[in-house]
Design a protein around this nucleic acid. Structure first.
Lengths: 117, 117
DNA sequence: GAATAGCATTGACGTCTATCAACTAAATCG
DNA sequence: CGATTTAGTTGATAGACGTCAATGCTATTC
């Protein structure tokens, strides 16, 4: 993620001259940022963040039927949030008969977590 | 953030009976989640995440005029993203003459960072 | 004082998002 | 088989979001 940026002293530039040097911007960094941003975006909703929190606290798998009554939202909305988390790679799911069990994929959070600290 | 949740064995409930126990949901946790989610939401855009990254790498303060050419976006869009980061408490700004300097408020990321690890 | 550079704000536009009600699909029980 | 339960999907809707062009504001230079 390192972006090479020169810090230059500031003077008002003399009419028509560029303010700053253009900076190269490798694609690797951009993709790295895009991956982490997509994880952060998925966590950027209080309901989803709490869902992840519950799943993390119960190291094992948690049934959707136990997640729904935690929130004052319709079942379909919870299902939607779980889908968002699934598509972000943050959680996985497993079907057992009538019930669906969700769990956290710990690796998914690692990259963002490492960058944050 | 601990939510007390009983994991019970699953059997199809006999018509009209509740599937799961209602669970209490303290406000403190909700507010904690809301704070962290708002930070995550602000980081949930690749441009903003890269802005924060640049500011973190340059431990000091960075001029907006050096941030704008890093991205293929209009100056007003960058200004908008910086405002979002400012309102999330992630960055601060300081005016010096014609120039505005931005910096990361390290404490702002700490709560989310701690939760993630 | 006039012109201009740097940055923020406003307005507009298309897209995405969170939510619910209604419906669908699969599995279970009687 | 038929009724019921669970969970995912679809459609609709109101609001939020990302982006740009245009404008406004303050500080600087001449």
């Amino acid at each position: 993620m390192s972006i090479d940026l020169e810090l230059t002293p500031k003077t008002k530039r003399p009419a028509g001259e560029r303010c700053c040097q253009p900076v190269v911007y490798p694609d690797v960094q951009r993709e790295h940022a895009a991956r982490m941003a997509s994880v952060a975006k998925a966590l950027g909703d209080p309901i989803r963040l709490q869902l992840v929190d519950v799943l993390r606290l119960h190291a094992g798998k948690v049934c959707v039927c136990e997640l729904v009554p935690l929130f004052d939202l319709s079942q379909s909305t919870i299902s939607h949030h779980l889908k968002v988390l699934r598509q972000a790679g943050i959680v996985g799911s497993e079907r057992q008969g009538l019930w669906a069990y969700y769990y956290v994929r710990p690796d998914a959070l690692q990259e963002l977590s490492a960058w944050l600290s």
